[in-house]
């Protein structure tokens, strides 16, 4: 039966029937995969925020100042029109964001379910992956 507390073991079944780990090498590989998934999760989170900043520059003061100087263009979605152009283009950006969101939610749940195995190695892998992902991806958010 599945234990309900953290333990160290190189035997675990992760997410799917076929992901059945029963050797130290397999465990190392699984930890690596979980690390990469956690890094990807952080990267997508930052990528989504970056995309949002690009398509919705309402918060960027330089743009809002320009829209103030052009009152005829100062509608609700001026920023969107300026950068994304036509409504069709805005729809495309929005679809990409939606897709990224779906990927992020799925990844988040997969990582959560893997942590739920209560395997300490997997847990540590996820934590380290999350830290690396945050450390590398976050500064890229502000890069031009």
């Amino acid at each position: 039966m599945m234990p309900m507390y953290f333990f160290f073991s190189d035997k675990v079944v992760l997410l799917f029937d076929f992901w059945n780990v029963h050797s130290p090498a397999g465990m190392a590989l699984s930890v690596l995969v979980m690390m990469l998934l956690a890094v990807l999760y952080e990267a997508i989170k930052v990528g989504k925020a970056k995309l949002l900043l690009r398509t919705m520059p309402a918060m960027a003061p330089s743009l809002s100042q320009e829209t103030l100087e052009e009152p005829e263009r100062a509608s609700m979605n001026t920023g969107v029109e300026r950068l994304a152009g036509t409504p069709q283009k805005w729809f495309l950006w929005h679809s990409i964001q939606t897709l990224l969101h779906v990927v992020q939610v799925v990844l988040g749940y997969l990582v959560m379910l893997a942590v739920m195995s209560y395997n300490m190695w997997i847990f540590l892998g996820v934590i380290v992956g999350s830290a690396i992902g945050y450390y590398i991806a976050y500064p890229l958010l502000n890069a031009r």
Partner: peptide, 19 residues
């Protein structure tokens, strides 16, 4: 940023514990 990363680790650990 390094400080934020450390806080991020703590936050992730606690959030998984709570989950």
């Amino acid at each position: 940023h390094i400080f934020q990363t450390v806080l991020h680790i703590i936050q992730v650990v606690i959030s998984y514990f709570l989950m």
